[in-house]
Amino acid sequence: MPTTVPTPQPVPPLLQIEDLHVEFDTPDGTVEAVAGVGFSVGAQETVAVVGESGSGKTVTALAVLQLLDGGRISRGRVLWDGTDLTGLDRRALRRIRGNEIAMIFQDPMTSLDPLYTVGHQIVEGLRLHRRIDKRAARGRASSCWSRSHARPAPQARRYPHQLSGGQRQRVMIAIALACSPRLLIADEPTTALDVTIEAQILELLRELQAEYRSAMLLVTHDMGVVAETADRVVVFYAGQVVEQGPTAEVLRDPQHPYTAALLAAVPSGETDRAEPLAAIPGVVPPLRAMPSGCRFHTRCARAWDDCARDEPPLLPLPGGRSARCLLHRSGTALQAAAVKGA
């Protein structure tokens, strides 16, 4: 199939983020929290976004939905089904948000309105998007509800404060999936929950995603979750994508020193308990004081002189992968063709 656009997928992706820059005005001046992020999510695909705290994962997710509070997209596009969301008016956005793209937030404790029953909140979400009457909405809500295993009926009359964190997150999932969105953005949906509940919630997400045939953009810290859930993984560092590719390959053979360091920091079954985990030395540079050249070079074990000077582009690698590292620059044909969106 001949295409003029060098995308890795044969079909145009559902969501394509191109060269996204997000700025915030702070009392001490403007900071750029996201600096040229680009990646895509195909239909029914699960893409994981990983990276340290503060690397811009949440800001990117919010930017996709045009929900930035106090920030603005200073450059770049967010293509949804070929339409640029950054230029849409509120009304058009509303039709897409919640209906075609739904989002689940990090903190289930505060993501529900404390004054309404959870059942009401699921029905409300439905009625806003589907022109259906109350009864139909209730029916659909209760089926979503039982699908999300939040236990049937009586729970629907409860208020958020009467539910546990896991149950609330199930409610959030029910709200998000009630309209069977084509893309579900889940921003660390399980960080606030304990490990057993986390596994259940992730399992539920996978199940429902398969049932509703949604794509999923899963933001997480957890490499284990990535390995179990994602088709592809996008690694963030300091507001940029440093590596992306199919999950299995990236985890097996990381092409960016940062990814390698992240993986080394994950405890695995084989690791000798006595051996300390390899922590990444140093801290994420503050937004206001980004190092020149490669943003990771100050912490990188494999950095050399060039790294402080040349900013590496996101270089395409074989197998639909790419990495933002000068290690891959060395005189190959790949050098010229920086992946679109980087």
């Binding site: 505060t110 993501s111 979400g125």
Partner: peptide
């Protein structure tokens, strides 16, 4: 607060403001 973000994406501004 986050719950406003939960409803805001899909709801008309007036609904968000008045009911929540």
């Amino acid at each position: 607060s986050p719950f406003i973000r939960t409803v805001r994406p899909g709801a008309p501004e007036r609904t968000v403001l008045v009911t929540h």
